[in-house]
Amino acid sequence: MKMNQQKIAPYLFISPFFILFFIFGAFPDLFSLFLSFTRWNGMSKIEFVGLKNFIYLVTRDDFFWKSLTNTFFLLLIGSLLQHIIALPLAVMLDSKVLKGREFFRTAYFLPYITSTVSIAFLFGYLFDRNFGLFNYLMELAGLPGIKWFSEPSTVKPAIAILLNWRWIGWNTILYLAGLQSIPGELIESARVEGAGRYAIFFFILLPLLLPVIFFAVSLSIIFGMQLFDEALILTGGVGGNPGGVDNAGLTTLIYLYTVGFRWGKFGLGSAVSWVLFLIIISATVTFKKIIERIQH
């Protein structure tokens, strides 16, 4: 009897997680996978349509392709390029000579813990045509003000400015954690050997930081491909002209939301989510291979 209880006990202890996971994680995922092969508006009977949704997405859905192009572009200028800034910032913050490091760390991390919706609304004010800070600064510099959300060409840069402001601090903190795990003796002995600041950075710190770079960039890919709130609020929210003027800010997740909840095509919406999942997995695996190749 006691033996039986001992056997069951561990499973009982871990069961709360699995019960919750199956209800709120696995079931919705599997149901959306099932839905992606169906036509369903949320109220009608579910009709099995095989691969039709996927074929439609790939061959005929110009909104889907536009949303993917937008998302990739925003991923590049809003999520990936910021690592080039975050890494040197982390090195600076790691410097022993910098005063007030704690303050800077907190300041950089603050945007990450602030509500996305509040940030997006705040940036809406900053981008305002007549009263916004950005146009005010441009006018001070003698440049004409920009109609940020009235011209397709400036919608994505505006979203990217917000993304960079929000995530640079997060990535800086990740890199800082990575830098602090590198043994100080390594850097010290390199200095003794006569290595300069740049040589230490490129030949010691950077190679040792590769696992952290992989982690940080992978997170950027995952979050960047699922960009939603910021773009949605800045481009005017739900209702008409998804993603703003000329659909310039239509990300794949906004498209998924529009197709599913606004247009009532849950089957197609689910197919979008699974295609997006495959893209994210492929991008992450590809990046892992690149990092591994560099390491070897």
Binding site: N41, G240, D246, G264
Partner: peptide, 22 residues
Amino acid sequence: SKYDVIARDIWITAVTNVIIGK
């Protein structure tokens, strides 16, 4: 019709594209 919302959303894109001269 059930497609009104789709038609409306797409139509607004057409309207704004004409307005901005695209």
